[in-house]
Design a binder for these strands. Sequence first.
DNA 1: TGAGTTATTATGTCTAGACATAATAGGTGT
DNA 2: ACACCTATTATGTCTAGACATAATAACTCA
Lengths: 251, 251
Amino acid sequence: MTALHARISGELADRIRSGEWPPGQRIPFEHELTAQYGCARATASKAVQALADAGLVERRRRAGTFVASPRIQTAVLEIPELKTEVRRRGQVYDYQQLARRVRPVNPLDPDEASLARSGDVVELRCRHFANERPLAVEDRLIHLGVAPAAATADFTTVPPGAWLLAHVAWSEAEHRIAAAAADADVAAALEVPTGTACLVLKRWTWREGKGVTFVRQRFAGEAFELVARFAPRSFDQGGHEGRPTPGMRSK
Amino acid sequence: MTALHARISGELADRIRSGEWPPGQRIPFEHELTAQYGCARATASKAVQALADAGLVERRRRAGTFVASPRIQTAVLEIPELKTEVRRRGQVYDYQQLARRVRPVNPLDPDEASLARSGDVVELRCRHFANERPLAVEDRLIHLGVAPAAATADFTTVPPGAWLLAHVAWSEAEHRIAAAAADADVAAALEVPTGTACLVLKRWTWREGKGVTFVRQRFAGEAFELVARFAPRSFDQGGHEGRPTPGMRSK
DNA sequence: TGAGTTATTATGTCTAGACATAATAGGTGT
DNA sequence: ACACCTATTATGTCTAGACATAATAACTCA
């Protein structure tokens, strides 16, 4: 049994997605929906509010509710922890720590300065493997002022991403995605020719405004893609295909 | 005046984000919140449900509501229409159509086959400029079976992305992001050396399950980044910084 | 002991009201 | 024309209940 409010949302969403109600079109008032579906206003309101939360409609007091204009494509990228993701894809995951040291923050590096301007960090370089083949090279900094336990953690067996997920609570993050040519070191680690185009994923993570970790992962060439499938802003009610959105995909 | 349900959501979210309530911790029952805030259960329920929608907590019947484990980083990427984005950044936008033709779909190309297996498409190649410098090369297919008006549209002055936004209603899309070396043609169009690492953004757009358009945009090297800033799954209540998330950023 | 039944609990859904608020339309008077 | 006031309207928020449902805990009986 689908709930009534979900049915109303779904039927409205279908008419919007089909183009029957184009952007700018007014959709029925709440009191019209209550008459149409024989429900209380709270139920109709909940249905319409769900569409508003999804960005499908805009609500204006006194005027009504209108189909929104899809100006920007907002795609929800799920950026997974690599160990989890490789296993989810049924591949053999392996991991190797290449280097580890503790040093002060270098505030002259803009990537580092965004994390913190002072204090000590653990600096790691490691490799992730999928089915015995190098998948990514990871450079990571963990700020010891925020996560002091990282100083004694053993990153030769546990990838830092997995370790942090288990040791740090909810946080904010910023991701940047770019492309860059592999330098000699990275190319060797990925077992590709120097100069190969790499996908570069950088992520800064904060907790209560203080930088916890910075990570840069480089994936070889076109062997990897970030994937984001979405309904406008993920409104997954109306019986549309519901396959889980993979964040990454090998070719 | 903030609404009471928003205040409750915010106060709960703060305790979760601060780590005071770690993942797995049970948060107060709805009936405890009604007592604590002196409100009806519907109000407490709305507050907690908002956190659940944001992915911050999980609700289990009979057991209660628990702080969720942040397994995957879900980042909301806003992938803007280029003309709008360049102007938003205060730069001069320019656009040039390089080639245009109408031809049948080639079902042997996997990118095209994902769009449609038969019918005619408009094939376009064009360039986007920001401040007189090439920003991206765009290859686009528009399926004439779904958007017949594209056959007669003038894409020498209007970029196809902007045209489609104005002519096509809400739709679903899939994005893929990868890195690739620029071939000779693309390198020339971007005015960079052949082999330069490029960020490749591919997007398929469907409407009611039928492919509308496929676009591949290539950005030169590290000149461009996709940016996604987020609270866990975008719960923006509790007085955190609210700067609009830019989807792209030039260096 | 173990399997099946029953009671309990917290969330999920819904109703029929109420008052608040933002925005507009219409009228009034200068 | 213009500024000002006054309904009117749809959404925003909230209450005090009600019954449904899933999951578990407690109990009963073979």
